[in-house]
Measured scan of single mutants.
Amino acid sequence: NQASVVANQLIPINTALTLVMMRSEVVTPVGIPAEDIPRLVSMQVNRAVPLGTTLMPDMVRGYA
């Protein structure tokens, strides 16, 4: 089972991601792999991401 990136807090739209906003968790469906967390830092979300939501590739500008 692969860990995915999950929002550690509410992340408002257009917010640049920081390490404290994300955690890794084994979830279904699988989202962005946890090993990509360092790559996600400073990328912006293109929608509001509620606490506990799995980050999907289409939620992060420039990721996919």
Rank of each mutant, 00 (worst) to 15 (best):
T18M: 06
V6H: 02
L51T: 13
T18K: 06
G52Y: 06
A34W: 08
N14W: 08
M56E: 08
N1Y: 14
G52R: 06
Q9V: 10
L19A: 11
V30K: 04
V20G: 12
L55A: 01
I32V: 09
A34K: 05
S42W: 11
P33Q: 08
I32L: 10
P50S: 09
D36S: 11
E35G: 05
N14K: 10
T53H: 14
I37K: 05
T28W: 04
L17W: 00
V60F: 03
N14Y: 08
L19P: 12
M21Q: 05
P29K: 05
P33Y: 15
M56I: 07
V27S: 08
G52K: 04
Y63N: 04
N1T: 15
A64Q: 10
A34P: 09
M59E: 03
T15I: 05
R47Q: 14
V60S: 01
V30Q: 06
M43Y: 10
L51D: 14
N14R: 07
T18C: 07
R61F: 08
D58N: 12
A3D: 12
R23C: 05
M59V: 05
P38F: 10
L40S: 00
D58A: 12
V5C: 06
P57A: 14
A7F: 01
S42K: 08
Y63F: 09
S4C: 07
G52N: 13
D58W: 06
V27E: 02
V26H: 08
A64E: 13
P29T: 04
P29Y: 03
T54C: 05
Q9R: 11
Q44Y: 11
E25N: 05
M56R: 07
Y63V: 04
T54Q: 04
V60R: 00
L40V: 08
G31Y: 02
M21Y: 06
E25Q: 06
P33I: 13
I13T: 12
Q9L: 15
V27M: 13
P12K: 10
L51R: 05
T28V: 09
N8M: 11
V26M: 13
D58T: 10
R61M: 13
L10G: 13
I32K: 00
T15C: 06
V20C: 15
A3F: 09
T54K: 04
D36V: 08
L10H: 14
Q44C: 15
V60W: 02
I37R: 07
S24K: 04
A64W: 03
P57R: 05
N8S: 15
I37H: 03
G31I: 01
P12W: 05
V45D: 01
L10E: 14
T15G: 09
M43C: 03
E35V: 08
L55I: 14
V26F: 09
T15M: 13
R61K: 13
E35A: 12
S24M: 09
P12I: 08
V30D: 15
V60Y: 01
R39C: 08
P50R: 13
R23L: 11
Q2R: 03
V20M: 15
I13F: 07
M21A: 09
I13L: 07
V6K: 04
A48I: 14
T18P: 00
L51I: 10
R39L: 12
M21T: 03
R61Y: 13
P29S: 05
V6C: 04
V5E: 00
M59T: 05
G52A: 10
L51M: 15
N46D: 13
R47D: 08
M22H: 00
G52E: 07
V49A: 05
V5F: 01
L55R: 00
M21I: 03
A7K: 01
G62W: 05
T53Q: 10
M56H: 11
T15N: 05
A48C: 05
L17M: 08
P57I: 07
R61A: 12
S42H: 10
T18Y: 03
P12D: 14
N46L: 14
R61T: 14
V30N: 06
L40Y: 02
V60C: 03
Y63I: 08
R47C: 06
L17F: 02
R23M: 10
Y63C: 03
N46H: 06
P38D: 11
I13N: 14
N14F: 05
D58V: 08
L51F: 14
M59W: 07
M59G: 03
V6Q: 05
G62N: 05
A64I: 13
V45C: 06
A7N: 02
Q9P: 02
A48N: 10
T53K: 09
I11R: 01
Q44V: 10
P50H: 09
V27H: 05
G62R: 05
L19K: 10
D58I: 06
